[in-house]
């Protein structure tokens, strides 16, 4: 069946170069932010990998660590979501699957991010 719409009409609404820049920028900004955060987090992880309950909670609950940990997790998940979106866009060709996977990745990132932030605040403020 032939499509009577012009190629321009078919292309409209499928996104523009202007929108892509937003994703590109967000990926770079989160990358730059993660440089010091990941160095800090990797060192902390190495020191705390065998920590017991009390030690781990005391560490997570201290004010500076709370701030850095929330930043690391939220920015890290955002950066991961942006990166996975590019991978999905490159390798998944069906439009339905592509959209479903991108949405699923975003939902999982938000759920884990919110849960982790709530957990950190609960440890810090005692609940």
């Amino acid at each position: 069946m032939s499509d009577l719409r012009t190629p321009l009409a078919r292309a409209r609404g499928l996104g523009s170069a202007r929108e892509g820049v937003k994703h590109w920028w967000a990926q770079r900004l989160t990358a730059i932010a993660l440089i010091p955060l990941v160095v800090w987090f990797a060192i902390s992880l190495v020191m705390l990998s065998g920590a017991d309950y009390e030690v781990a909670r005391a560490w997570i609950g201290s004010p500076l660590v709370m701030v850095l940990l929330i930043l690391t997790i939220v920015i890290g998940l955002h950066h991961g979501q942006l990166g996975l979106q590019v991978v999905i866009e490159d390798y998944v060709h069906g439009d339905g699957w592509k959209l479903a996977l991108i949405v699923a990745v975003r939902f999982v990132a938000v759920v884990f991010g919110v849960a982790a932030v709530v957990a950190i605040l609960r440890i810090g403020f005692g609940g």
Binding site: R57, L77, G83, V108
Partner: peptide, 27 residues
């Protein structure tokens, strides 16, 4: 490594969530 780290980020988020849950969960 980017894909692996994304999965790893969920694992590390889980670590914090278990620490908030209970001593038993954390253990």
């Amino acid at each position: 490594t980017g894909i692996a780290l994304s999965v790893g980020a969920l694992y590390l988020a889980t670590w914090v969530i278990y620490a908030a849950a209970s001593p038993k969960a954390y253990a």
